[in-house]
């Protein structure tokens, strides 16, 4: 079969599971961060210089209006993938609320409603190119 079609199918189905799974388990922001973000940004939030940006003390992360931060998680940027198919609005808000208050960060929480607004509105998100096997 076509791997491309398979991936599109898998992604769509994965989204369905993530949506329904959120209500069952209720992992903390720290747990969700460790699962989804720490491979690159590290559990310390310090990233890896020259490779993955630090989130601890990053002005981008703690800016007063976190809309663009939510947008970045949803739609990706540079080497960072889109998390829109995998994580619910609630999960992303939980993660961002954690990231903005963890380590030395002291910024306010991010609501699921704000994440939702960035998922669907604002500047039209770049068309997501489905990942394709090689």
């Amino acid at each position: 079969m076509s791997p491309r079609a398979r991936l599109i199918a898998a992604t769509a189905l994965g989204f369905a599971l993530a949506s329904s799974g959120a209500a069952l388990a209720d992992p903390s922001g720290q747990e969700l961060f460790q699962q989804n973000c720490s491979a690159c940004h590290q559990v310390t939030g310090k990233g890896i210089p020259g490779a993955f940006p630090a989130l601890d003390g990053d002005p981008f992360v703690v800016q007063p209006d976190p809309a663009i931060v939510a947008y970045t998680v949803l739609h990706g940027r540079g080497g960072m993938p889109t998390f829109a198919p995998e994580l619910t609005d609630e999960q992303i808000s939980t993660i961002l609320t954690y990231v903005r208050s963890a380590w030395s960060n002291k910024a306010g929480p991010v609501t699921a409603a704000l994440v939702k607004s960035q998922r669907t509105s604002g500047a039209p998100p770049k068309p997501h190119i489905p990942e394709q096997a090689h």
């Binding site: 491979a39 993938p81 198919p85 995998e86 990942e131 096997a133």
Partner: peptide, 13 residues
Amino acid sequence: YYQFGSNAAKVSA
């Protein structure tokens, strides 16, 4: 496994 995108980020943690 052979995964991509956010799934690869997750598994690589």
